[in-house]
Design a protein around this nucleic acid. Structure first.
Lengths: 341, 341
DNA sequence: AATTGGCACTCGACTGCGTGGAGTGCTATC
DNA sequence: GATAGCACTCCACGCAGTCGAGTGCCAATT
């Protein structure tokens, strides 16, 4: 084993101990608790090098070492092995999710489950509208000049929108339009809809141009809106448990960030480059001040006929990365399975 | 002024000072900051009496006094005047809520607004399904043996449910059923539906008893489900700001309680005796261990054609009751106006 | 009878000091 | 390159001592 390899072993050991004890770890403790085969003095040399490389720091002169963001990054990239969950754990996940009665229930169960498994804050994004396909469009006249448009996707998601019209409704026209819309659109991926909608306008125009245009506009606009994406969060209480130890001041900024759908959606989108793999953002990498002292572990789920979205967990920098990654990956997989079935 | 009256003045002064400073208040400070017209010694006598009555306590022998739950209760019941919001504040509320585009948006804006106004955790309950009335029922065949039932209420709320059938669907029957359901049910209050549904079953039975029964059962079951009620929460970060000072250990239990829809719904239901007035639950009165160190201020909103539900704020025992009550009441009123319009 | 001033007393908050121990970096040695 | 030894640093902790806010009680006053 080269001395370079041993240094990484030392880093791994430091992180494992620090995660377990929450206290800076010194060379003596390290040599006792791990079989590194070298003396504390040697470890000290390695530590000096790791510190030089910016992977660990000393809180103060006569204290042990603590990993930096870069240290955790190194650990996650090169050292951590995602340890699979136990069979009972997997059974429990599967059973719990299969009892769900509809999409909302699936998501709700998944997010609570993940929060409990990881003992951290869990986050689940609803399957994205844009990538799922259309199952049904419903037009409901409401009074003389209002029209409720209901859009239903193959994932079971329902979007609604009320239109205000400039002239009174023609019931017959509405009925015809409903049929035509559904014939023309059902089963299409939302991305493919724009063209289909346009040709529909030209085709139907004669019989009530104004109504058709406004409805079609509403449908495509609704579909285009990215703000339709939603994220649910659970387990915020898990933040409070270790608050004093893990966060320099308060958990306030973290809670704020978690309440901002926009922030979470941006982060999830950034991490979505690879759909299926588990992605990790550590500390500052989240690019958000409130989350600078947290790490974010996410995985994509869905696909194959259902929408695509992400699940994840948010916790302190000092988190059990292998365990969290395993739990996130497992929940993502079971979610995919449930939604495809 | 009787000495009894002065005692209550002293209680009021103690609460005001304690809320402002977060520190136990002594007789000297009281006589200086308030025009009570008596000496500290007299105040001390009154304090002894108030303590005897269980309205205030001393954290330790040589400290000032702190209000008890009972003290706050007394204050809220007999001493607090709800001070109306300023005109600009009311303008801002009105403007913000009026920009909302649909029900979800109204609720979302309302809860964030209230969190900001009160600097506490805000809670808004969706207008209850049970009390709103039915606008439309939609049946959507999905494959041969699945039927999606979509229920739309006058408040714009959409509920969905997927049915699994034991035999293949008869499209024509579904179409007929849709029409009949809507003719029979539209505009009825949900409470009145049970009977209407039953008579519908007997009327339609011959033409496909199984399908009709299963659909009707699903509709009434969905409507009956109280679990359909939802509460949204915002501003949990406001808890963290004063965490150390206001909560004996951590805010964990509070966050847990706030994540449990069931807990919130129970509390809101209990406070709903009077629909319009502002109700307050102080500390233990919430009957929930996690909320023993918080108070809950709520008000009903809605009615008149829209659903009925509650808005509220949750904060530390030591909260600005008059201000919070004013904000909650104002938001409730504007919500009522917006939903009726 | 209520109010007031005076006074002794209590007790937490804060400060300063000394000590112990964990941990380091450096240097000489194998 | 790895190790043992050693001097050094600095925090955490415990301990006294002081300060001051606040009280309760009592006697005097109105």
């Amino acid at each position: 084993m080269s001395s370079e390899d041993r240094r990484l072993d030392v880093l791994r050991a430091i992180i494992e101990d620090y995660v377990a004890t929450r206290e800076p770890v010194g060379s003596r403790a390290l040599s006792e608790r791990h079989q590194l085969g070298v003396s504390p003095a040697t470890i000290r040399n390695d530590m000096a090098a790791l510190e030089e490389a910016g992977l660990i720091v000393q809180p103060h002169t006569s204290a042990g070492r603590v990993p930096t963001d870069m240290g955790y990054r190194q650990f996650v990239d090169r050292l951590a092995e995602v340890k699979p969950l136990s069979l009972p754990e997997r059974r429990a996940i599967s059973a719990l999710l299969e009892q769900a009665v509809d999409l909302d229930d699936v998501i709700d169960r998944a997010v609570r489950l993940l929060a409990q498994l990881t003992q951290q804050v869990a986050v689940v994004q609803y399957p994205s509208l844009r990538r799922s396909s259309l199952r049904h469009v419903e037009l409901v006249p409401v009074g003389a000049r209002h029209l409720l448009v209901v859009i239903i996707t193959t994932t079971g998601r329902v979007e609604q929108r009320t239109l205000e019209l400039t002239e009174d409704l023609d019931e017959a026209l509405v009925a015809r339009l409903r049929v035509r819309l559904n014939v023309a659109l059902s089963g299409l991926r939302l991305a493919e809809l724009s063209k289909a909608l346009e040709s529909l306008v030209t085709e139907l125009s004669p019989a009530g141009a104004a109504l058709v245009r406004v409805v079609v506009a509403a449908v495509s606009e609704t579909l285009a809106q990215e703000s339709e994406e939603r994220v649910v969060v659970a387990g915020t209480a898990n933040l409070a448990r270790t608050a004093g130890a893990d966060f320099s001041r308060t958990i306030g900024p973290v809670l704020e960030a978690l309440e901002e759908q926009v922030v979470l959606l941006r982060l999830l989108a950034e991490m979505a480059e690879d759909h299926t793999a588990v992605a990790v953002r550590i500390g500052r990498e989240t690019q958000h001040a409130g989350l600078a002292e947290t790490s974010f572990v996410t995985s994509g789920y869905g696909g194959e006929g259902s929408g695509v979205a992400r699940v994840g967990a948010v916790g302190p920098l000092r988190m059990d990365y292998p365990g969290t990654m395993a739990a996130v990956r497992a929940v993502a997989r079971y979610l995919t399975r449930i939604l495809a079935g």
